[in-house]
Simulated assay, not measured.
Amino acid sequence: MTRLSVNINKIATLRNSRGGHVPSVKTATIKCQEFGAQGITVHPRPDERHITRKDVYEIKPLITTEFNIEGYPGEDFLRMVTEVQPDQVTLVPDSETQLTSDHGWNTWEHLGFLKDVILRLKQSGIRTSIFVDPDERMVEGAAEIKTDRIELYTEPYATLYPIDRNKAIEPFVRAAKLADSLGIDINAGHDLSLENLNFMYHKIPNLKEVSIGHALIADALYLGLEITIQKYLECLK
């Protein structure tokens, strides 16, 4: 079974654009789970342009499924996640000013740093995942780091999918097969949508989790949140 984790960053972005508490990140957390989401993902950034540190602490008691926190593993981030104790932390190589994630880790270049971070998180009882491109060499590095999971960065797949979906999925299938052979579980995320999700699911049946935010929240503007979550869940059958 592939779990659907809803990234609620865009809810916070909309709230922050006006100030105040509407739409409510806490209500969104509750409703996403009520409507069938099997996890909640957030990606707090240092400038707090969407999810804030306060949000992270406030929604933790509301999560009855799984809580995944993404972010660059700076000291402030690591202190926060060890206090909050989410089910999973996904490490991304984003700079402080980056608009959105646009590449995975060079696992060999940052091997020592990531090893130390992974060990620290595991000692706190937190499952670990590393954001990587569908590059077999980077997957091999992830195995050296001893992460529990990798999250495949799927924007290249989403971009090529309308042109040649079989070509688009090829490197992801290879990376997933290698990860599986190395004992690493596989997540995926970035630009996955109702258009391209089901095809990836069928080509990579050992996916543990997909994290989807931007497209899902955009679809919810037209379809409603409950119907949208159900449609995404249908893609994972």
Rank of each mutant, 00 (worst) to 15 (best):
N16R: 13
V89G: 01
G183C: 04
E140V: 04
P86M: 05
G71Q: 10
I145T: 00
N68Q: 10
T27L: 15
V25K: 04
K54R: 14
V56G: 03
L192G: 07
T154G: 03
T147K: 00
E48G: 08
H202P: 01
T2M: 13
G20P: 10
L121G: 00
F113T: 05
E170V: 01
V117M: 01
L216S: 07
A142C: 06
A37V: 07
N16T: 05
P205W: 05
E58L: 12
K26I: 03
V81A: 02
N198L: 01
E83D: 14
L78C: 10
A218K: 13
G224V: 07
L236K: 12
T228I: 02
H103V: 04
F35G: 08
F113Y: 13
M200Q: 11
G36R: 11
N9M: 09
Y222L: 13
I126M: 05
H21V: 12
A143C: 09
I130Q: 04
E66A: 09
I204R: 07
I59P: 03
A37Y: 06
F131G: 00
W105I: 01
L223N: 14
K122D: 00
M1E: 13
G213R: 01
L221N: 07
S101C: 12
G213D: 10
A218C: 06
K122Y: 00
N196L: 09
E140G: 02
A142Y: 07
Q85W: 02
D164K: 06
A176N: 03
P23E: 02
R127S: 11
A215Q: 12
R149L: 14
R3V: 11
H50K: 06
Y57E: 14
S101W: 10
T27R: 15
D47Q: 15
R18C: 10
R15P: 07
E96Y: 10
S181N: 11
L233K: 15
L114C: 01
E70Y: 03
G36V: 09
R127L: 10
A168S: 10
M1P: 15
T147I: 00
N196T: 11
I11R: 02
R174W: 02
S101V: 09
D116L: 00
R174A: 15
E109K: 12
Y161Q: 06
I150F: 04
I145R: 00
V42H: 01
E75P: 04
R127M: 10
